[in-house]
């Protein structure tokens, strides 16, 4: 359904199809990567599958997530929508403080969200900064360190340049814990719509319902 045909004027088409496809592939990929990641790191305590299966699955899903990242990148760069992620440096501090105040205080008192999600201004100041760092720094770092761990001999020179395999592993593992923790917060914050499931529905339909 195209935004022009939105039946309800309060509905805003904020998640175009490529974004939704990317998001759900990424989400399921992350779940598999986290499960297999725990299995790989704690093989002596977790018995979901054999270690070699866990590693192979982790590798395959990792490549899906990497390919998916390029779907995201090409869509956002090609459509120019990447600017959704670029904060307005003159206003960002004030907006971020207001948004943090909302999450930490105003929300509990039923005060309105200072940010309204629209197709042109999708992210609030905190989301904008967090996603900018995640998508352009942390996720690429996780993908590159994952690639290095996948073919240690093949990338030996780069690995040595960065200080050795254990340094690469440390980056990968710390980001692994960060992304797992991020998933808790991300899923929780997604329940803060006008109903607990509103944002989840929007990520399937593309339409955000404004109340």
């Amino acid at each position: 359904m195209h935004p022009q045909h939105a039946l309800n004027q309060q509905m805003d088409y904020v998640h175009p199809a490529p974004v939704r496809v990317w998001h759900w592939i990424n989400a399921s990929g992350f779940l598999f990567l986290i499960l297999t990641g725990f299995q790989i790191r704690y093989a002596e305590s977790i018995n979901l599958m054999t270690l070699s299966h866990a590693i192979n699955l982790h590798n395959y899903v990792g490549f899906v997530v990497i390919a998916n990242y390029f779907l995201w990148l090409s869509y956002y760069l090609g459509s120019g929508k990447i600017k959704l992620y670029i904060p307005d440096l003159r206003r960002v501090v004030g907006l971020a403080i207001r948004q943090a105040r909302y999450y930490g205080f105003d929300f509990f008192l039923g005060r309105p969200n200072p940010h309204t999600m629209t197709a042109e201004n999708k992210f609030n100041a905190l989301q904008q900064q967090a996603y900018l760092v995640i998508m352009l720094v942390l996720l690429p770092a996780q993908m590159i360190s994952g690639l290095f761990l996948w073919k240690v001999k093949g990338y030996e020179e780069y690995i040595n340049l960065l200080g050795g395999i254990k340094v690469i592993d440390t980056i990968h593992v710390l980001l692994f814990f960060f992304f797992t923790s991020f998933l808790f917060i991300h899923c929780y914050l997604a329940t803060l719509g006008h109903t607990p499931l509103a944002h989840f529905k929007a990520m399937f339909t593309g339409y955000e319902n404004h109340h």
Binding site: I40, R41, Y42, A43, E44, L51, I55, N160, G163, G164, I165, K166, V167, D169, T170, V173, L174, F176, F177, F178, T180, S181, F182, L183, F184, I185
Partner: peptide, 25 residues
């Protein structure tokens, strides 16, 4: 730094840091 067996020779400190990160979230 140039020898690492997944799980086998893992840095235990990272497990503690990881637990803190997960608990924080």
């Amino acid at each position: 730094n140039h020898f690492y067996l997944l799980g086998g020779t893992r840095v235990k400190l990272l497990d503690k840091i990881g637990l803190l990160i997960l608990a924080g979230g």
